[in-house]
Write a protein that binds this DNA or RNA. Structure first.
Lengths: 159, 159
DNA sequence: AATAAATCATTGACTTCTACAACAATCCAT
DNA sequence: ATGGATTGTTGTAGAAGTCAATGATTTATT
């Protein structure tokens, strides 16, 4: 009879290198946790024919903030041309619509349709579950602290 | 006369979308802070002809842990074939050497040369400076907390 | 008002990354 | 000793990232 310690990666190649100094490199920590979460996230979102990228656009299209494509590009740290492709696909699926900006007719705002809102609702549940799984090693209070610190690092203390 | 509030992204397209619910999505927060840091990181490392990826391999080659390529792939969340390319380049520059594993002759351990150690030392200073810049919005204690939480999420509380 | 400069979305070309299958050499289990 | 698994490697197909150019529109300058 074999007893598997819960959560322990069996042979655990990991255990060895965790001792390396790179584990105090912020970039590495962010990349690694993001990579681990992405797998779960994309797996969960695949059921809705979404990926992390298209899902994030769908969220913002549902925010009521009527973001323009340029704003999406800046906010999501993507090239404007990538936003075009993402919105193209979502628009083809009737999940979002483009509309000329009211103030600026060059810009195009991206807002969700009713179908987009419905899909967003269902997908966000699955995404929340995936996130919880990726963060199961943390207490709920720790998750809140972690998010607060990340937000502060990004936008300052006022957030 | 125009007064620029320090640290504020001038027009700040950002400010608007910060209100969206995506800012409580862990994957998004990790990706965004990582993206912001990567720019600074890669800019700093370019002076040494390194990128984030090759730098991380160089760190582990300098760890004294004699990691195999497979271990590097697992730990860095990269495909083994990508490790081949990264080690190829570092080895061509005489910064690391491949050696057959003592226990397993299939495996190849990657260890730094003297030149690799020297470059690592200089590059790590630049990288630390870039990291500090990316995290300037946080107090030093907060940075420590953030890293501790990320480590716990990745490897559990014992670390 | 007229012109110049800047901005937005879009396209296209190009490079880099990622993921995956196939392979020889080597190790492990039976 | 044989079959199955693992390691590094190569190659490839597709995704993602970067960058310049363009028409439409806005903003700034004169």
């Amino acid at each position: 009879m074999t007893i598997e310690v819960q959560g322990a990666k069996q042979g655990s190649v990991e255990d060895k290198l965790v001792a390396a100094s790179i584990t105090s490199d912020m970039g590495f920590l962010l990349a690694k946790l993001h990579a681990a979460g992405s797998v779960l996230n994309n797996r969960a979102l695949a059921a809705f024919d979404l990926k992390e990228r298209s899902y994030s656009v769908l969220i913002l299209a549902n925010s009521g903030l009527e973001p323009t494509q340029r704003e999406l590009a800046d906010f999501l740290s993507l090239d404007p041309s990538q936003i075009v492709a993402l919105v193209d696909e979502l628009e083809k699926r009737r999940l979002v619509v483009r509309a000329p900006g009211k103030l600026d007719r060059r810009a195009k705002t991206v807002t969700a349709t009713a179908a987009g809102a419905k899909l967003h609702e269902r997908a966000s549940e699955a995404a929340a579950q995936a996130e919880a799984e990726a963060l199961q090693g943390l207490e709920t209070a720790e998750v809140a602290t972690l998010k607060a610190l990340l937000r502060k690092a990004l936008w300052g203390g006022a957030v």
